[in-house]
């Protein structure tokens, strides 16, 4: 297959960037999108052009490292990560525009590589259950209904890739935050810290410059882990209750 690529090239975080035109020749239909870029990079190297820098690691859709906006959509067509996108999904001869994830809170570091440390800092604000190794009771001492555990698992499946924020017109990270708030908040082990957790994580999210949700559902449409936007509603409710408690002075 053959493709005409428009690829975002940017030297560093401070410099401006622009789309460069490259051709991708002799691409097997079974190749993944990233393997297509590997082939292009080999070509560029042979021609003495610095290869395109892009993030990827596990290449099986679970680490959340790959982060390309393809024809304007984070992770491109279909619902999966960039690494799980295969070239047979494209037409031979198609023009493909490749940009980094775009969100104010994800500064571009070089070419297609963005900095997503903001997500780590949101997790540090409260995405945990305070517990120390060695202090746990027997794992079966607290039964958890299967339906509850299953929803917690649905939420816990988030891979932290950042596509939600990149897709959102407001650059909101609420799908990401709500996934963690829902996962830990549903489990009996996580409940004691629910109020503190939701307040700190949402506040950190605001501090990082992410916007708020205004129900576009673009996040849900691109999420490779299938996190539903309804979690955001749940989080908003938890946040409201916690902030009311806080404002009337109930200790959290």
């Amino acid at each position: 297959m053959k493709f005409y690529l428009e690829v975002w090239r940017q030297k560093g975080p401070e410099s401006g960037g622009k789309l460069e035109h490259y051709e991708a020749n002799n691409i097997p239909a079974e190749a993944s999108f990233l393997e297509m870029l590997d082939i292009v990079n080999e070509d560029l190297t042979a021609k003495g052009i610095e290869p395109i820098q892009f993030d990827s690691d596990c290449r099986e859709g679970i680490c959340g490292n790959c982060s390309l906006t393809i024809n304007g959509v984070p992770h491109g067509p279909g619902r999966g990560t960039t690494c799980q996108l295969y070239m047979r999904k494209f037409r031979d001869g198609q023009i493909i525009t490749i940009e980094p994830f775009r969100a104010d809170s994800f500064p571009v570091e070089r070419d297609l590589v963005v900095n997503r440390e903001a997500y780590d800092r949101i997790m540090q604000a409260g995405g945990f259950i305070s517990e120390r190794a060695g202090s746990a009771p027997d794992a079966n001492s607290v039964p958890i209904p299967k339906v509850v555990a299953d929803v917690a698992m649905d939420a816990a499946a988030c891979i932290g890739c950042g596509a939600c924020a990149a897709a959102c017109p407001n650059g909101s990270a609420m799908l990401f935050v709500s996934a963690k708030v829902t996962h830990l908040g549903l489990l009996p082990q996580g409940k004691p810290e629910n109020d503190r957790r939701v307040l700190s994580m949402v506040r950190q999210m605001d501090k990082e410059g992410f916007g708020n949700c205004s129900n576009y559902y673009a996040c849900e449409a691109v999420c490779p882990a299938g996190i539903p936007a309804s979690f955001i509603a749940g989080m908003n409710r938890a946040y409201s209750f916690a902030s009311i408690k806080e404002s009337v002075g109930i200790p959290l």
């Binding site: 517990e131 746990a136 794992a139 079966n140 607290v142 039964p143 209904p145 917690a152």
Partner: peptide, 22 residues
Amino acid sequence: NQIIDQCVAQGVPFAREYGGLL
């Protein structure tokens, strides 16, 4: 065995049976 206890305590959503046990 301690590992499983530890993981459940920190919120790892292991598969469960309908009775709520692992």
